[in-house]
Design a binder for these strands. Sequence first.
DNA 1: TTACTGGTTGAAAACGTTACCAGCCTGTAC
DNA 2: GTACAGGCTGGTAACGTTTTCAACCAGTAA
Lengths: 334, 334
Amino acid sequence: MKIYTIKDIARKAGVSVTTVSRVLNKRPDVNQATREKVERVMAECHFVGNANARGLKQPDGDLIAIILRGRDNPFLNALAEAMLQHTQGLDASFLMEFVDEQADEFQTALRLSHEKRVKGFIFVGGRIDERAKVLDGMDSPMVFTTISAENTSFSHAASVFIDDRAMGYQAMKTLIDAGHTRIAIFGGIRQGDDGFAKRYTGAMDALAEACIPFDDERFVQTRFSLRGAYDTARSFFESKPDTTAVFAMSDTIAFGVIRALQDMGKSVPADVSVVGFDGIEMSKFFIPRLTTVEQPVDDIARESVQVLMDMLERGEEPRHIIVDAKLQIRESVQ
Amino acid sequence: MKIYTIKDIARKAGVSVTTVSRVLNKRPDVNQATREKVERVMAECHFVGNANARGLKQPDGDLIAIILRGRDNPFLNALAEAMLQHTQGLDASFLMEFVDEQADEFQTALRLSHEKRVKGFIFVGGRIDERAKVLDGMDSPMVFTTISAENTSFSHAASVFIDDRAMGYQAMKTLIDAGHTRIAIFGGIRQGDDGFAKRYTGAMDALAEACIPFDDERFVQTRFSLRGAYDTARSFFESKPDTTAVFAMSDTIAFGVIRALQDMGKSVPADVSVVGFDGIEMSKFFIPRLTTVEQPVDDIARESVQVLMDMLERGEEPRHIIVDAKLQIRESVQ
DNA sequence: TTACTGGTTGAAAACGTTACCAGCCTGTAC
DNA sequence: GTACAGGCTGGTAACGTTTTCAACCAGTAA
């Protein structure tokens, strides 16, 4: 089927392309009758402008990309969703881009910056490493979320995050206060993300403070998926059956662990206590309800958008913002 | 920072823009020395072509859009993800587009077809109604998933779906066979999607076959979210406490219902049995594991891509493909 | 010598749109 | 009458690419 261009519309309506363009862009300086005629023709032809041509001609206006790594991560998805909410009414356009686990998000960003003239970036679930230099060198403002860019050499990188160390401390403290001493930590190390390391450090601090020795074999690395956590937990508890509590570095891991425990005849929290991290929606509905560190999704989203706009529109310096997380006491710890 | 164009590169490298374009597109007819020189300059400048200009000039190649409605729906997300897997190695480019609940996905599709010259569409979580005419009128091949387009007037609409009636029947039959007679159905009616209606019909058939009367008040409409199902279930069970089984039309609804029952002091499956629908990952990990109708995500994805490619490349007629779903017996029914 | 080949290259015309500028009217003020 | 403003309109030059065509320069065959 024919795809109509602005020229076709102009011919059919008996006006110039300029006039059609004016109607298309809702400019005021068009006669009402002319406008209606053109609009009628456009409607008949199901006309939609060609974005390439438009973008080519007017590469202006602040275009901002939200780059989400991890489509199947409920927490990051909720965060990106919240971000989209906070972009409403702002004097900028936003686009959401997904990259998968293996991809280089900075190359994606670089591509967007050239291809679509994207001006600013918000990374959701991203990592920080040297590769960010390519963006920083271009003076592109960027915001990292749930991860600190404070002590990096980048001059255009802001960040919004929680105090992972403090929350790791609190999570562990909760377990200690409940009387546990043989506590496992389920998590992992992600290149370019020291959040997990900080949670680990916080947890260690709590342990040290209570003079509880930590058996390194109780730090177990796992994939961040239900299946991964389940499998890891099954083999872990076979070798360390006397463990009575688990600090899981994500809610998803916590669910996998709980399911595994259940299948091994141990119930949560009666036999083993579990505390999670993130506070995704399911944590309120899972059985048992999960005691977890709830990340302030809405605050992170709001601040991220805010700090980026400040950099972009007012040339402000990048800030590094710590927002308050909160430990939600629910049912999985006893 | 300066954004380099092909002209800048040409000037810096002392060649023509044509040559740069050739290098950019890896054409064979460029002298090796010239190619290397141009590539070096491009690397120095972090050059990436402008997608708008390129798209404007070469709107060719089969571009296919996967339009996903419902970012927070785990089942639809898994389906879209699987689709992406099956596009590997195909002679076409795919792009994934999200539309939110309120948006008109056909307008989105129309826009994509004009803006990016998208040739074919796969709708994930879409609805079928008259608005699809705009695409059908343009001869754009489209595939609807998890929903039948069989008895529509569209000549370019294929579809891939399960036998919702049969699966609704099986789900209900499972409950009946377990001895239940006071069974509630939690679901809803979605405009343009008769899948739920078919599941309902199937369930009714099973009831009729077993000569069990159905109390219309036990058909309860709910939002398709944990929270929505939870709230609905709480008020429902207050008015109909003697209900002993629930057929939930999605796993998410099932989880909300189970949580609500738990909070009302009823356990699943001891007091109330629940069967879900979709078979998302969490259904294997929830406590109790959910007995549910598992949609063959991989089959739906593969067939959808296949039938669209057949229409696009070989001009074949749209087909309407029924794939086999399977009732997964797990722990939530007794 | 001429003719022709193949490997490289560049000039210029698109692609569909918007921005700028100039030009037409009609009406109003001098 | 002239001048000028304001509303409306159209012609044309961009935007950054790719594509088409022509042309160059060896080298080789006749």
